[in-house]
Amino acid sequence: MSLLEVCKVSVEYKTWNSKIEALNDVSFSLSHNEILGILGESGSGKSTLALTIMKALPKNAKVRNGKIIYKDKDLLNLSESMLNSIRWKEISIVPQNSMNSLSPVHKIGDQLYDILKLHNPSIEKKEALEIIKEKLTISNLGENIVDKYPHQLSGGMRQRVLIATSLLCEPKIILADEPTTGLDVVTQYQILKELKELQDKIKFSMIIISHDISVIVNISQRVLVMYNGQVVEEGKTQSILEEPMHPYTKALFEVQLMVGRIKKEDLKIVEKQDNKIQNFENFSGCVFYFRCPFATQRCKNENPRLTKVKNEHSVACFLYG
């Protein structure tokens, strides 16, 4: 049985003279103790998706339709007070930018205590400190971090503080939005490894969002590939690795760099920049049409639906029926 169910969610942003569709009919589910990777480049709608689940969309965004079911409740219809009992306690987020996500003028311990107190008003200071220290320790940080300010920490340590923060109220689901972007290779490796170990140890479900396919495949059990606000491919990591189907996914695999001098052809398909994006306003075809080397007349007129091709592996492309 799935823990979180996202059904046909569409979100649009309004600017003063135009509407931009950020998510279009996105559906997926998340099981207990599963790590789901969401892969997409900037502008694919992956961050909007995280914000929608947390119901933290900016004011000019509107959920046009869809449901997000968690424990038989539709998160999109909950009142603010009901939501507050779910945020952090049931679903928490590890945000993208570790520099802006922490207050620069407060000690780490105090910041974590504030969050804990907010969701658990009756908690004793001493007990809170115990919990905070415990969470910091399992996130691979020393207990002395509580007395430090964010600027005294390295990028990797700040990211670990954010992971500890997300664990504070022992949530069932953790959303990690680009948790390793901007970090060095070594730190990125360590953080991913620690996240995976944590998930294994204390059992929670996790959605990890990234633009980097190597990050996604190494940590998640299932992968969702997003392009331009739509899910274009979904499947078990192993299955996608063995046979990526969507031309976009294929391209992402092909441009991977490895250590060693492997000759790479200039990949026109991913390179081609979306100058024509404005045409999307009255465009009803496939979202990948403008960059796809296999595009046909049909792709121009019709948007392929996500269809199951083999066991637990779906793709939205006419090349696969």
């Binding site: 390295s154 990797g156 340590m157 290779v185 070594v186 730190t187 990125q188 490796y189 360590q190 991913l192 490894k193 995976k196 980097d212 396919i213 190597s214 990050v215 495949v217 190494n218 940590i219 990591t237 690795l241 695999f253 991977q256 760099l257 490895m258 250590v259």
Partner: peptide
């Protein structure tokens, strides 16, 4: 530490801390 699309066990790096 370089990750690629070849899945591997994220084992311990032979380097400590930061």
């Amino acid at each position: 530490a370089v990750l690629t699309t070849k899945i591997r066990n994220l084992g311990e790096l032979k380097i400590k801390g930061e």
